[in-house]
């Protein structure tokens, strides 16, 4: 394992310290935690109170979540150990820091650990009479969804949920409205990922699984969870076809005549150039399928340490407010420029 690190057990606090030291205009650390809260003047110099939007999860997915804290997206974010849900006490601190008197919405990725820890934090905040609601993102269509499972995992589509809900919160929406908005967006968000090389958790020291020199794993999660099949490498265009097919199956009536927001998301070690080649194939094939890409992002948004591979997310824009929310101003480390209007 070759990584730029000091003691692996200090990874998370050092990373968060580096983030706030590099970008004090966006985030500051909440004392005695590895959670961050907005530090921009619009927030610190007390503006109109908004509903706080808090997310978090295990580390190793940077820029998620702390990189999306700022005006127009998250109010606070909590970083757990690598691939490990943060603890309730830290989430509770983030809730308190984010609350401006109008309550707090928690955006949780659907993992047992995350759900349980956020639930315990909600209980703690309940004692303080802070109104807290939560939504659970489960966009990973690689996983079978049935009565007999935990439901689907929350993966890269989370960033669309954070952007839209964050923009609505910034626009002044109340907690109840945000819960419904979040649930509606989640229902239309579908993601599938593929890995060329698994991630190496620093404290483990070797890749989570081994792939042959010409193998690809379809349907991987963002914590080295194996996927639904392992096959020989295929060209980008064929990969796009497979992933679009899987996602298209999730939308009643397929892709045709629908309008989507598209996210091509690198897993951490995949060059941006390859992501653009894949995006080219995806957008081309969407066009052939009579579907529209009204919004596109290409880059590393929800990573998995040094995993090689990428995921494709389609969010069907079934509500006319969602595209303006995606294009609304946001000032964060990770979302990029927001002069997106075409």
């Amino acid at each position: 394992m070759k990584k730029i690190l000091n003691d692996p057990s200090d990874l998370v606090p050092e990373m968060m310290a580096g983030m706030v030291a590099s970008y004090p205009q966006y985030v500051r650390l909440i004392p005695d935690t590895t959670a961050v809260v907005r530090n921009d003047k619009a927030f610190t110099e007390k503006h109109e109170p908004r509903v706080g939007v808090v997310s978090g999860g295990g580390s190793g997915h940077e820029p998620l979540h702390a990189g999306f804290v700022g005006l127009g997206m998250l109010t606070a974010a909590v970083a757990g150990q690598v691939f490990t849900s943060p603890t309730p006490d830290q989430i509770y601190e983030a809730i308190k820091a984010a609350n401006q008197g109008r309550g707090v919405l928690l955006i949780i990725k659907n993992y047992s650990g995350d759900v349980m820890n956020f639930d315990m934090a909600k209980d703690l905040a309940g004692i303080d009479d802070i109104p807290v609601e939560s939504i659970v993102v489960d966009d990973d269509v690689a996983v079978e969804d049935s009565l007999y499972t935990q439901g689907r995992r929350g993966v890269a589509g989370t960033v669309f949920v954070e952007k839209i809900v964050g923009a609505a919160a910034e626009a002044g929406a109340d907690l109840k409205t945000l819960v419904q908005l979040g649930k509606d967006v989640i229902a239309q968000t579908k993601t599938i990922g593929v890995a060329l090389h698994a991630a190496t958790v620093p404290e483990v020291g070797h890749p989570g699984f081994e792939l042959g020199p010409d193998e690809m794993e379809y349907g991987v999660g963002i914590h080295n969870e194996p996927g639904y099949k392992r096959e020989k490498m295929v060209p980008s265009a064929q990969l796009a076809k497979e992933l679009l097919g899987k996602i298209g199956d999730q939308f009643p009536g397929g892709l045709a005549d629908k309008s989507f927001a598209v996210l091509v998301n690198g897993f951490g070690a995949t060059p941006l150039g390859e992501q653009f080649i894949f995006a080219n194939d995806v957008l081309h094939q969407l066009g052939e399928a009579q579907a529209t890409a009204a919004f596109t992002k290409v880059g590393n948004y929800v990573t998995s340490l040094d995993m090689t591979g990428l995921s494709l997310t389609l969010l069907q824009l079934t509500d006319k407010h969602w595209l303006p929310y995606l294009n609304a101003p946001a000032a964060t480390i990770g979302w990029g420029d927001t002069r997106n209007e075409r």
Binding site: G58, T84, P86, D89, Y111, S112, G113, M116, N117, M120
Partner: peptide
């Protein structure tokens, strides 16, 4: 346990 373990096992053992 609750404040140091995290993941699924933290809240469960906690």
């Amino acid at each position: 346990l609750i404040s140091k373990v995290g993941g699924a096992s933290g809240p469960l053992y906690g």
